[in-house]
């Protein structure tokens, strides 16, 4: 029932912009357009929903089947003890999406990880660099077209700057 409340509030605030995804396991899943991401996330973070915690942020590569990446956000509300999963598609021809780092501080690193692994750009991110991989790494390792055992070229020794 609680699930319904959140989705009702969302569809009331953003008519036509939110699609509920039915889930056989009973999780609350919502699909939105990437242009509406910031306003919907801002709405969810504040009252009445109070999803104050960004639990997780990740990406799935569907390039071969649907021609897009799918961003997956997990939010958690401590006050109502609810989780919600928000999905948004990022098309192949424009690999960017708004950054959430103004709303949640841990989005900074999480988005850097997604940039590192999938090559998606986050508009408005303060420090868009690779997180785990080094400077000079070629390709995006978690994409499906990146082979498991691909070798990387040797990078030259870095110059010492004063």
């Amino acid at each position: 029932m609680e699930n319904k409340k959140v989705i009702d509030a969302l569809t009331k605030a953003f008519p036509g912009k939110v699609t509920e995804v039915p889930d056989r396991l009973g999780d609350t899943i919502v699909r939105i357009e990437k242009d509406d991401l910031l306003i919907i996330m801002d709405f969810l973070k504040n009252r009445p929903c109070e999803f104050t915690m960004l639990l997780d942020l990740t990406c799935v590569d569907y390039l071969s089947s649907k021609g897009c990446f799918e961003m997956v956000y997990h939010l958690f509300s401590i006050s109502s003890n609810k989780r919600i999963r928000i999905k948004s598609e990022v098309r192949k021809n424009e690999l960017d999406i708004d950054s959430l780092s103004d709303l949640w501080k841990n989005a900074n690193w999480l988005e850097r990880e997604v940039f590192d692994m999938f090559g998606i750009n986050f508009k408005g991110h303060p420090d868009m660099r690779r997180l785990f991989m080094y400077e000079g790494f070629e390709g995006y390792p978690l994409c499906k077209d990146y082979p498991l055992r691909k070798r990387q070229p040797k990078i030259p020794l870095r110059k010492i700057t004063k």
């Binding site: 997780d56 990740t58 997990h74 841990n106 690193w109």
Partner: peptide
């Protein structure tokens, strides 16, 4: 937490770990 996407085969299509200390160290 684990986030797993299955495509119906015997291997996960995508597996993501929500590591607790990732957020704390950030």
């Amino acid at each position: 937490g684990f986030y797993i996407v299955s495509d119906g085969t015997d291997k996960p299509y995508r597996l993501h770990l929500r590591a607790p200390c990732f957020h704390i160290v950030s």
